[in-house]
Nucleic acid binder design. Structure first.
Lengths: 371, 371
DNA sequence: AAAGTTTCGGAAAACGTTATCAGCACCTGA
DNA sequence: TCAGGTGCTGATAACGTTTTCCGAAACTTT
């Protein structure tokens, strides 16, 4: 019992394959009565179009490749969920490739996806420098959007969170709640998240204390570094630790608790990204929530654009994040342990106005893009 | 500059398309000299086979659909990584669909993947009962393997961890380290993980204490329940909390620490699954590690099987897990805080012999399957 | 040397769509 | 009445492979 084809539907409805195709694809008007007959026959035969044949003929597979460095990075699962949701809403399927942080594997996966004739690619580059070549080559063949990280200037369209705004939100919040001696626990390197967050801290922290921009400790984006960094930063007697991502914050929080420090009474801890673990820590970690659904929607929108010929300027879209205030940065007066929901809800309103400010910043700012 | 096709390669190498196809696909022997010419031309033209055309002609897309309930469930990212790795090794690409715990969305995704002519499906059912229909229908059309969870008997092949063995490992470890008053913090319901782990606890805990099998507290698989469950279980004055998964264990650990209880000095905590958070907690949580890579390999192997005609008995494969001992269950004598690596390594050897016992249990136990 | 057997290569028919082209009927306005 | 639309529909040619069928050599075997 093999599947029904257009031929079968045509035979059953007494018209030609061309007509059936037109009815089902809606590409050209067809007589109302005929159309009804065709639809009935298709329904009755349980006709399902063959995507392979369609792809061959129309040169479009309805498929997007998603290439990421490590699905186990705790920030990516939500991003993947939102991306697949946004793309499915456009009727596109998602081919997933995890390249295990290896640029060579990444290049292979990209080549394989291109051979599979994906309509477009979504890439979170594994490496700032070493991903560049493969990404650029792919971008020359299909629409390609970089997400979350960059890989050099002028390679392709890109969508990411506005790290500077996020860091400002954190520093404003800490200032407003009376913290003065802050330290930054960050990541070394030139990758966008590491560098942008570091620079934003350095340029923004001066408002709290002229010396604050100098109190920077750099490692990598890991819990282990968060733990170790506390031992280094402790000599500065900080009353707040601003961490460049949530993993660092989790590690810092653990080490502080091991040392018997009171969080947030003695020292506040903040993260970045709002991975699930940030909410599940005790106390919950105040952090910057990336607007994941919106990032995904922007990426999907860029991929929907018709493939213009000739080189057009690449678009860099930055979306402003929200601050999620949890207990790890509660004001010192009341050492507010316990359920975090109250303070979180209270701050969410304050957050609303901020997120409104920076809805979408399209750096190329073409007029026709504004809706 | 469009892609090179077989025609182009044929023209360039002075032979027919058929010959080129044979050389490149290796389906039939071809003269050495001709083959060399073809390969050179293909290389020179940077020929890439068109998967759409190939799929149309050979009725195989080289694509597998992966349907899961929630990519944000912290156990799934590693599983997804290992599955994609195993499938890519077979030259198959992975179409990902996240159905957000909604059986209706799951059914839609399955239908879409079938329309896209996936060669096979890998499904982690969203619901024990409500996923059954769509899964059964799909299994009738393509090879289908259920993972992690079941959805009723006799629906399809399935691969999962051996929950009973895992629970035994935990109970043996607790007994060996002197724990006697254990409680079980589990999940209600009939889903396989919830039920099997609960039953295994009830049948195994008697060895520690005749009353232990009765000390069972049921909620769901969440951190919140773990926190709440501690308050219920605390009246039993336990010296060990056996949790049905790592999220519950994380919550339990947090609540215990909030109450000022000493973990592991006063009470041990164990989890199940070995999600990343278990290792990153402080103290690290002793847990049962699912053999994720092996589960993925088994699933891939089942999908590789040629599609036998007629109904064959479904295979249920259970793989034995390992115990990962971390500080949350360190012996009470030495209240061993600090680095967990030492005790973990020490136990790993003990674990080795256990994992050897239950390498692969193929419940259908066909002789030709044993290698 | 004739008859089989193997080996290699080409022509051409699928696979199930979509797109192009042309035909047919029917109108509309001179 | 006829030229020129304006729907609607059907044949048919792609799309780029794989695969079947055949023929032509080149070897074996008798």
């Amino acid at each position: 019992m093999t599947d029904a084809t257009l031929r079968d539907v045509a035979r059953a409805s007494g018209c030609s394959v061309a007509t059936v195709s037109r009815v089902l694809a809606g590409t050209r008007p067809v007589g109302a009565e005929t159309a009804e007959r065709v639809r009935a026959a298709a329904e009755q035969l349980d006709y399902r179009p063959n995507h392979a044949a369609r792809a061959l003929r129309s040169r479009a597979t309805g498929t997007v490749g998603l290439v990421l460095p490590q699905i186990t990075n705790p920030f990516y699962p939500t991003l993947v969920r939102e991306l697949t949701r946004a793309l499915h809403a456009d009727g596109r399927a998602v081919l997933l490739a995890d390249c295990d942080d290896d640029p060579a594997a990444e290049a292979e996966h990209i080549a394989d996806l291109l051979a599979r004739r994906v309509d477009a690619l979504l890439v979170i580059p594994a490496h700032e420098r070493r991903s560049r070549e493969a990404v650029a080559a792919a971008a020359a063949r299909v629409p390609l959007v970089l997400m979350d990280r960059g890989c050099g200037p002028g390679v392709a369209d890109s969508v990411a969170v506005d790290n500077a705004t996020g860091m400002d939100l954190v520093l404003d919040h800490l200032a407003a709640t009376g913290r003065r001696r802050v330290c930054f626990l960050g990541a070394a390197g030139t990758a966008s998240a590491a560098a942008e967050r570091r620079l934003a801290y350095e340029s923004g922290a001066g408002a709290l204390d002229p010396d604050a921009p100098g109190r920077v400790f750099l490692g990598d984006f890991s819990v282990e570094w968060g733990r170790a960094a506390v031992d280094e930063a402790w000599h500065e007697r900080p009353d707040a630790l601003v961490c460049a991502n949530d993993l660092i914050a989790v590690g810092a929080l653990q080490r502080l608790q091991q040392r018997g420090a009171d969080v947030p009474g003695q020292v506040a801890v903040t993260g970045f990204d709002d991975i699930p673990m940030a909410a599940l820590s005790a106390p919950g970690i105040t952090t910057v929530r990336q607007p994941v659904a919106e990032l995904a929607a922007e990426a999907a929108r860029l991929l929907r654009r018709p493939p213009e010929h000739g080189s057009r300027p690449h678009r860099t879209i930055r979306l402003a994040p929200d601050l999620v205030v949890r207990d790890s940065s509660a004001p010192q007066q009341q050492s507010g342990h316990g359920t975090s929901e109250v303070s979180e809800v209270a701050e969410v309103t304050e957050v609303g106005e901020v997120s409104e400010v920076g809805a979408v910043k399209d750096m190329t700012a073409r007029p026709e893009e504004a809706q």
